[in-house]
């Protein structure tokens, strides 16, 4: 290829938008070929592919995001879109209100306490602990919590994404090993522990799991920001 043409193209939003969707199509193919094995997570594979491309071409993240932002923007409408499967399964969700409320409080509490206590015990500094506390909540909300309490919002964003990928990879083998077949419960746990990325995984496993994951993600986006400021003073001295 003409070198100057390449130099021009790789600075355009068009190139990186196309590359993002292309990388995802490849990743999705691989994931399907691996029969949706949890380790062949399409988000994880796409991120590695795109990151490799950025590194090889020496492209800064900002240039990449100028193109990728059009995909990123759709996260908001996609969250709203979860209202449709929620409506379809409204009766089932209503039957499970009590278990959901209890699991929501327990899960949110364990997510905050276990992460902060463990990292603190392993010697992570204060700002890292504050940044870690809201890690199970969707990125925008978690960053706001982190900023308000003196954490580092960019570090929080990274921890949130990693938590999403870890949860999406672990949830299926963990639940299978425990012999849990209640997909409402499995999905709820996936969405609570690892927000949207866990929800995306839940939808590929079972539609009911997807619905409960979406509900858990939405509810946790309310509960964790309320809980973190109350608990953190007890965990960090």
């Amino acid at each position: 290829m003409n070198w100057q043409l390449w130099v021009y193209l790789q600075t355009t939003p068009l190139f990186w938008l196309t590359a993002t969707i292309g990388a995802f199509l490849v990743a999705d193919r691989l994931s399907l070929a691996a029969r949706r094995h949890p380790l062949a997570n399409p988000v994880l594979i796409s991120v590695v592919l795109v990151a490799l491309l950025l590194w090889l071409s020496g492209t800064p993240y900002k240039t990449y995001f100028d193109g990728a932002q059009f995909v990123h923007f759709l996260l908001g409408p996609a969250t709203v879109a979860l209202g449709v499967p929620l409506y379809k399964n409204f009766a089932l969700v209503r039957q499970n209100l009590l278990p959901m409320a209890a699991a929501l409080l327990a899960g949110a509490l364990v997510a905050i306490v276990s992460s902060v206590a463990l990292a603190g015990w392993l010697g992570a500094p204060r700002e890292a602990l504050v940044s870690l506390a809201p890690k199970s909540v969707t990125a925008g909300v978690a960053m706001a919590v982190s900023e308000k309490l003196g954490g580092l919002p960019p570090l929080t964003a990274v921890l949130v994404i990693l938590t999403g990928v870890i949860g999406a990879v672990i949830v299926t083998p963990l639940m299978n090993a425990l012999g849990i077949r209640d997909f409402a419960a499995r999905g709820f746990a996936a969405g609570l522990a690892s927000h949207g990325i866990g929800t995306a995984r839940a939808f590929t496993v079972d539609p009911v799991a997807g619905v409960f994951a979406g509900v858990a993600m939405g509810l946790n986006a309310v509960v964790t920001p309320a809980m973190v400021p109350l608990i953190l003073p007890w965990l960090i001295r």
Partner: peptide
């Protein structure tokens, strides 16, 4: 419209995911 979006939900996390690379040193 909702089902079309949700069918590619995983794709929407890729741009933010790539952002992780930016903070590898911080991590």
């Amino acid at each position: 419209a909702a089902n079309a979006l949700l069918a590619s939900l995983s794709l929407l996390f890729v741009p933010a995911g790539v952002g992780v690379v930016q903070y590898f040193d911080l991590l």
